[in-house]
Structure formats: C-alpha cells, structure tokens
Design a protein around this nucleic acid. Structure first.
Lengths: 242, 242
DNA sequence: TAGTGGTCTAGACCACGCT
DNA sequence: GCGTGGTCTAGACCACTAT
C-alpha cells in the first residue's frame, strides 16, 4: 500500500509562514511599518489577494495591526493589549484595572526538573525567577511566581528590583527582543498557603484562583512560566466560549 | 455641526446577517445541508466571493460546517463539540472526559430578581431550575445549578429526571429548537458550602472552582444560566490567550 | 462525470489619513 | 492629490465526494 502524499501548503499559508519568519527574526521591529501590500506580494511572488489573506490571518492573532489609509504595523505590547488580551481578571462590577506590582524577590539559578520541562529547556539550563505581589484597587490581590530562561533574558537578574516595570511583556519586547505572541493558561482553585495568606491578608486555607500560564514567543518557543494565585472576592476571570 | 453619518454595513456583513437570521429562525435545521454557494449568492444578490466570506465568518463561530466536495451543513451539538468547545475541564494528565450526570432536582418557579437580570427576562417570568451532580472518572466532581427561561423550554420541568441526557445542549437543540451559539464564563475560587462538601465528599470550606456561564442562542438572547462548582484536585480549566 | 467547496488571480472602485 | 488598506466582482483552476 502506498503512503498518502502530503499535499503542499496553500500559497497563502506559505506566505504567512514567510511573513511570520520575518516578524520573529526581527527584520521588522515592534511598532514599525510593513511594506505596502503590492510590494509584499511582489517580493513573495504571489498576488495581492493572497498576501492579504496571509496578513489578515496574522492580524487576527494580534501580531500586526492594519489601519486603512495608513499601513500595516508590527503590534506592540501596549497597556491596552495587556489589559484586554493578557489580563483576564475583571472587577465584579465590570471595571478593568491593571494591577500595580511590588517585587518580592529576583534571582537566577539552575532550572528544576519541572521548570525545564514546562519551558522546554535542557536539564542544566539556567533560569531567572521573580516573585511579585500585585495590587488591585490598592489592595494586595495576587501572588505571582515567574520563571524565564536566562538565555533569552541576559542580565535580567541583575536589574534593580524597583526598575522592573509593571508590564513585563513590554520589557521583554523592548529590551530583549522577545515578543510574547500567545499563551496557554490552566486554572485551578487552591487553598492559600501560609505565605500566600500572609501576603494577601487572608487566613491560611482561603480559596485562591491559581492561573498557570506558559507564554510563547513569535517563534513558538516557551519564554515564560507564570503562576498567579489570585484572591477573587471582588474580581473574576473572564472567558469566551464558542 | 452635522452628525457623522453611520456608514452602511459592508455587503458581506449584511449577507452574514441574512444567513444568521435564516439559521436562527429554523429555515435550515441542525444537520441539514445549505444550498450551494452560487445559489446563495444569487438569492442574496451578491457575488459568490461575497457570500463565501459571510459563510467563512459563520463557520469560524462553529455554527456551520463546510466540507469540500459535499457542501455546507448546519452545525449540530455533538459530543465532540460539547467536549472541545463547551467543556473546558481537562485532567491534569491531559485526558479529556465528558462527565456523567446525576439529577438532584428539577422544578419550575418564578424567577428571582438576579435570575431575571442575568437571563434578560421580565421580573414576573417563570424559569425552570435543575441541579445536577457530575462525575469525572467515576468520582463526584461538579455540583451544577442550571436556570433556563420556561418560555423557551415548555414542558422541560415535567420530564422524568432520568430522561434528561448528559448533554443538555443537544436536548435544547433537538427538542426545543434552541441552538446554543456561544457562552460567556466568569471564574472564581470559592469555599465549598456544607452542601457542596457533602455532595463532593470534601470538607466544608475546601477550595472549589466556580464557573458562572451565560449561554446565548443563535438570535443572541440568553437561554441558560449555569453555575458549576468544581473540585480541581486532578483537573484544571484550560484557556487560550492571544 | 457532475457537483461542491478551496485556492488564486486580476482588476475596479471605495474610504481613510496625510500633506 | 496620493498612497494605503477595505470591499466587491468575475472567472479560472484544483481537490474532494458521490453516483
């Protein structure tokens, strides 16, 4: 019996891959303008309609922004994007507010087995670990534990703690050239540990929403593991189902 | 100063609305084949490319299924759809399993103020309430409280409890002509009430993941309010972030 | 072989933003 | 006015399904 032949990807899919490759390799940087559609079409050897389909795909993933009359731009990790795409906690009254941050600890070390596994690293790889306390409406609400590969973020561990911005993804993009493209989250309800409880002003054992997130860069590699334990008395996590 | 003129919707958006209207009004029923693209284009007075764009939009929302060589079909609430689109709890080992169900109570009554508000009903409207216990891998794992407008589901409250299928959305679609098109979920961590704890075999106060869902029918009206309290020792809720 | 959706092209015209 | 992306059309060809 003959094996089924793998059909080649359609042109628009290959055009998309080529454009994604350029985005990931830094040919076009965050905020920069891409060439107009006819130029892209010519350089890729396809029609404008085909390159348009590829661009529409990429725009749907929020990696580029298209504006009629102006052009196509590489998406930036702005506050608005963080708020609406990467931060899903909303006040029970419907208000959204980006939390403030207070760094608790920041240092590098060898990856544990679990960290290496979750980030897709070699066993001996080094990682940088960050712990933060985050405030919603002025009150401590989230304890956050963040682990990133040291190789991608050279020098992150020696930054002054007060120097770390609230929105890390903008820092990753601007200072280290790592653009977070998407993330996968797993949620559980857990009991607050004594340390969680102390940070959040709750009793030990109080229910917390644990958000376990792996963030992926443009090239598809995992670039951050983040576990956030959230007090959800006055806030909730929103999710759309289709 | 002159008011800004509202621009008309593009043709493909109006075509989409017309097609959605036909889907919602039951002109085409679940599982049935739609007319071929050229026929739809002619009946809507647009080109095939335009009707195609509308159909692609609708297919992306999982309301129709397009199959090359066969045609376009109205989506059904199959087990696979329930599992991958409307049930986000996954075993920590990655396995997905649809939970079994045991009905605890089923009866009709006037809506509370909160129920009327969440479902968009008049204050005096009647609702049907259902409580279920759901099993994951054979163990009680979810306590579920469901409220639906009685007007949409005539006679649901007099069904035999054992007659209620595990997958309610298929029942809604097949017996009542109500197709759930999308849903909005809010998640919180809560402490198990004594009743929750008794049903789930946990201690009172144990952390539970509360999923509060409003489901919307094809016409956009709320058709179900469901609150699920889940034990997440061996399972987690998955969410994709872009 | 006929019918269907999927891909790809070429080109016209429109709406928007800038200068 | 010019350059840009957005809409819409017409038509060619391909791939899959059923008969």
């Amino acid at each position: 019996m003959r094996a089924k032949l793998a059909r080649p990807l359609p042109l628009y899919a290959r055009a998309k891959q080529a454009l994604m490759q350029k985005l990931g390799s830094g040919v076009w940087r965050a905020g920069e303008k891409l060439p107009p559609e006819p130029a892209l079409a010519a350089s890729l050897g396809v029609s404008q309609g085909t390159v348009r389909r590829a661009l529409d795909d990429i725009a749907k993933a929020n990696l580029i922004v298209r504006r009629q009359g102006r052009g196509t731009y590489v998406a930036e990790h702005t506050q608005a994007r963080a708020l609406f795409h990467f931060f899903h906690l909303v006040g029970d009254d419907g208000r959204r507010a980006l939390p403030g941050s207070r760094v608790l600890s920041l240092k590098a070390g060898p990856a544990t087995r679990e960290e290496a596994s979750r980030l897709g690293l070699a066993a001996a790889a080094r990682v940088v670990r960050l712990q933060r306390l985050r405030l919603l409406d002025g009150a401590a609400a989230i304890v956050e534990r963040i682990v990133v590969p040291a190789a991608l973020f050279q020098g992150l561990d020696v930054r002054d703690r007060a120097d770390l911005p609230n929105e890390l993804y903008k820092l990753y993009q601007d200072r280290f050239g790592v653009s977070v493209a998407r993330a996968a989250e797993r949620l559980k309800a857990v009991a607050a540990s004594p340390e969680d409880a102390a940070h959040l002003g709750l009793r030990s054992g109080a229910p917390l929403l644990e958000i376990d997130r792996i963030a992926f860069a443009l090239d598809g590699r995992a670039c951050e593991w983040r576990v956030s334990r959230c007090a959800t008395h006055r806030h909730h996590y929103v999710s759309e189902v289709v």
